[in-house]
Amino acid sequence: MNSSSKQLQSAQSMNMQSRLLAHAPFLVACSMLVVIVAIYGSLQTGVFTIDEINLNTAAAMTLMLAATGQTIVLLRGGIDLSIGGMISLGTVIAATRFGDDPANILLWSGIILAIGFGIGALTGLLISVLRLQPFLVTLAGWSILNGIALMILPTDGGKVPEWWIGSGYLEFLGLGTPVWILLALIVFWCWFRATRLCTIIKATGSSEKSAFLSGVSITRINIITYGLSGFFAALASLYLTTQIGGGSPNIGTDYILPSVAAAIIGGVSLFGGRGHLFGTIVGAYILTLIGNLVFVLRVSSYWQPVMSGVILLLAVLASSYAEQKARKRGS
């Protein structure tokens, strides 16, 4: 009796431990963020103000939106490089079609989002039908979309109306537009991660064979996940136009690798099945704040990619360490 209750206890504490381990990559990301904020705060005054939060969230928002789609694709066990092309394409379409009429702008925003979802869905379909690596298909997709963006607008330019730009800087209850978008993202994820669809996406990323044997249509899941990724890339491009005030045919390229890095730093597994958007959001903040840190440290801005790389490496180490621990414990 006694020994069995002891066994139960140790089983429970093991359960606690393995739950902690499962969240280790996310917790590591959170602590890195805390450290970075602390360093930043000690070097710069006024870091802990709402203004600063608004500012940094604005700086991180495009990346966050792009990385949201990337997170969904990563959970499915894929990767989407084509978001780079989609973001560029979105900005140039907006910059050339918006005009001044709000109704027209609304219409074209809808069209851009639809194009994002449609092209993503097509990518997912191609991956399933051609049975090719997502890496290759989306790499090609990036190149093609980028080309189309250049055809529409060969150099930075075009324009969006002032009030559209201004809508990116509205304030409500002291919080700026980007913070409200962030809250909406969080609410979205709280809902999304509890849906059947999210379970199916994670399951497919965890074991495609098992998912198939359980009746999942892999083609359908590919269409949905890459479609969502395209949709979020389009959303990112719309937000980006409020930041740059026009179109830029190559700008999306800057978001491809950071979107993957943000997710990985936040603990999303590159092999699918594990992770969540909250991690990605933390990851996006970390990558953005490193830029600020480099600025206040007054070192050469070339240090920014170096530091990003080191942090990525640390995050990957943390998650693989946790993974191994969990393996040992389980299996």
Binding site: A194, S206, S214, V216, G273
Partner: peptide, 29 residues
């Protein structure tokens, strides 16, 4: 199946009711 069809990253109950989970009015599990 002989070569099991379970998903390693999901919990026991998530696996048992996979794709047939009971849902709330918000369409969440």
């Amino acid at each position: 199946f002989q070569e099991l069809s379970l998903v390693p990253d999901l919990s026991v109950e998530q696996n048992i009711w996979f794709r047939r989970e009971p849902r709330t009015w918000l369409r969440t599990v």
